[in-house]
Structure formats: structure tokens, C-alpha cells
């Protein structure tokens, strides 16, 4: 079974899903992430799904579960890079991904987490204000 790698960047865990995941791989990712959050003490999780050409209800549920678990572990989860066709399909499927924060790309996802932590008065985490206007590719 393939495993999805989890990268640590500063205070953030970055997961970039590059393969067409089997359900087992998805469940394994969920477990691996929970362990890494605890082990690293990170406060943010970014799941990049740019490479995913579909998200079905199983993967959708996995994303929701990851968001809930990380919230319990004091980490904010942002799902980034969802393709338009995937988003349209999810709406039609009836999956609303409640409780999941989303952003257009990794950079905006980082800003979102930074803003969130800043709101909670967590000063150690600040990417500064200038990242916002440089997001255009």
C-alpha cells in the first residue's frame, strides 16, 4: 500500500496528495497525520489536493475527519487547490465538507492559518502581511 508523505514546514504540516488514493491509503493518511501533529506540536495542517482529479464521498469524509481530529489536537486544517471540476462535482454529489477551511493554493492556506493563529493571540506564528499580494502565479 502506498503512503502519502507528510512534510513539516515551520509550524505547518504539509500533505500533498499526488496519487489516486485507495481507501486504505486514505485511512492510513488520517492516522499518520494525527501522530505527526502530536509528535511535532504543529498548529497547522495544509492538505494540497491540486493533483486529485476526483474527490468522492470517502475522501471527502477523510478530509472532514482530519479537520476534526486536528482541531481536537489544537491544529487548524486547510484544504487547498481543489480543482473547479472537482468542486462542481462535490456540490452535485451533495457533499458540503462542513467544518473544513479551504484556500485556493498553498500560499493562501498558510496565510489563512497565520491569520487564524494571530486571532487566537498566538504571536509566535506570523508570516507578515506581505504574502497576501504576491499570490498571483
Amino acid at each position: 500500500m502506498e503512503r502519502v508523505p507528510i512534510l513539516k514546514i515551520g509550524d505547518i504540516l504539509l500533505v500533498s496528495i499526488q496519487v489516486d488514493m485507495s481507501d486504505q491509503t486514505a485511512v492510513a493518511l488520517q492516522e499518520d497525520l494525527a501522530e505527526r501533529i502530536v509528535a511535532t506540536g504543529c498548529h497547522g495542517v495544509i492538505i494540497d489536493i491540486t493533483a486529485l482529479d476526483i474527490v468522492d464521498s470517502f475522501v471527502g469524509r477523510m478530509l472532514s475527519t482530519i479537520a476534526s481530529i486536528s482541531r481536537v489536537l489544537d491544529a487548524e486544517t486547510v484544504v487547498v487547490g481543489m480543482r473547479p471540476a472537482v468542486a462542481i462535482t462535490l456540490v452535485e454529489l451533495g457533499l458540503s465538507l462542513n467544518g473544513i477551511r479551504t484556500a485556493l493554493n498553498v500560499e493562501r492556506g498558510m496565510e489563512l492559518i497565520a491569520a487564524e493563529r494571530a486571532d487566537q493571540g498566538d504571536d509566535e506564528f506570523d508570516y507578515g502581511p506581505d504574502t497576501e499580494l504576491t499570490a498571483s502565479p
Binding site: V78, V79, V80, M82, R83, P84, A87, I88, L90, V91, E92, S96, L97, R101, T102, A103, L104, R108, G109
Partner: peptide, 12 residues
Amino acid sequence: LKTVVAARLMGA
């Protein structure tokens, strides 16, 4: 409406 919801899913 669906577009608005889809855009939200994408983070916009």
C-alpha cells in the same frame, strides 16, 4: 447558487 458553493469549496 451551486457556483457560489463550489467557489467556497475551492476557498473563494
